[in-house]
């Protein structure tokens, strides 16, 4: 059965069947990545533009690699929004790019809703690679893929997301995806970084990281940004580490094995201690590897016209 969407704007409203299909497809591509020549001709002739209005290293490289391994033609458009502001509008930019016969657009932008807006501007399939504080669906898919690989299931799994929930699109997509797939989700962070009414997602909320650790099978630890401190949302990095940092000591107190995830890049010694990040119960590098496979799956499922799917 084909995917029930034309675009991947987020995981809100995406069915368990569709998420399952994306994860299953990624399993196939994960195997391909282990081959001596990890490349297939599946999307030959398809052109993808990677439109990045925000600095990104790993997500952009991950998408680019996924496109290359599927034999798609890809072009990169990387810019800072401030320089764009003086020039043409986003709508003009995307329509000009589409006029060069583009099939798919991977977009990252600091403003929420930009992928939605692009669907109203052009015919191409749109993949959200992170929009403001809204969603980052491929990150959540690769997180779920990694968890499914490790635990064999998502249903009933207890995932605690730790940190700056308010500004995190990683949390935004993980909450939605995990809830759809039957996992339990707990959010943990300073009250000033917890979005309003977030419990309406059906998640649990705590400000005590030890409670979260005691409860969870998995900790997905978010990057804390210096600009939140500068905005006065928490006092110091030192205090953040003391109250919310994931340390070996805290994990040992739980007396059980806990899987550690992080979307990267890590602030070692702040949200996550170095020895925890590098421990054998950390799957952070698996996440990165799986990211390519998951993005291949998404590109394949959305980009495939009837012939290339078959």
């Amino acid at each position: 059965m084909p995917l029930q969407q034309k675009h991947l704007l987020g995981l809100e409203g995406v069915s368990a069947a569709d998420i399952g299909l994306m994860l299953d497809t990624a399993t196939t591509f994960r195997e391909i990545l282990e081959r001596p020549i990890p490349k297939v001709p599946t999307l030959r002739g398809l052109t993808v533009v990677n439109l990045f209005y925000e600095p990104s290293t790993r997500t952009r490289i991950s998408f680019e690699l996924a496109e290359k391994r599927l034999s798609a033609d890809s072009v990169n458009f990387t810019t800072s929004a401030s320089s764009v502001k003086k020039g043409e509008t986003l709508k003009d930019t995307i329509r000009n790019i589409e006029a060069m016969k583009i099939d798919m657009v991977v977009v990252r932008h600091q403003a929420a809703g930009v992928p939605h807006f692009l669907t109203q501007c052009v015919q191409a399939a749109i993949i959200n690679a992170g929009d403001g504080m809204h969603e980052h669906p491929t990150q959540a898919l690769l997180d779920m893929f990694t968890l499914r690989e490790r635990f064999g299931r998502l249903d009933g799994l207890r995932v605690a997301i730790i940190g700056d929930i308010s500004h995190s699109r990683v949390a935004g997509s993980n909450i939605r995806g995990l809830m759809t797939m039957g996992a339990e989700v707990m959010l943990c962070g300073p009250k000033t970084l917890m979005p309003r009414d977030v419990e309406k997602f059906g998640v649990q909320v705590t400000c005590d990281v030890e409670d979260a650790i005691a409860w969870a099978d998995v900790l997905n630890v978010l990057r804390i940004q210096l600009e939140r401190q500068e905005a006065g949302l928490f006092p110091t990095m030192r205090e953040y580490h003391a109250e919310f940092g994931i340390t070996r000591q805290r994990l040992e107190r739980a007396k059980k094995e806990i899987t550690i995830m992080h979307p990267g890049p890590i602030n070692r010694g702040i949200e996550l201690d170095a020895d925890v990040a590098d421990a054998d119960y950390s799957v952070i590098l698996d996440q990165v590897t799986n990211g390519v496979a998951v993005r291949m799956a998404v590109l394949y499922l959305l980009g495939g016209n009837e012939e290339s799917v078959s």
């Binding site: 929420a112 699109r169 309003r196 009414d197």
Partner: peptide, 18 residues
């Protein structure tokens, strides 16, 4: 802020105006 702060701003990922 871009919209009323509450459940919808959380869902849409837009900065809130409480």
């Amino acid at each position: 802020g871009q919209m009323h702060e509450g459940w919808m701003s959380t869902r849409l990922g837009l900065p809130g105006m409480p």
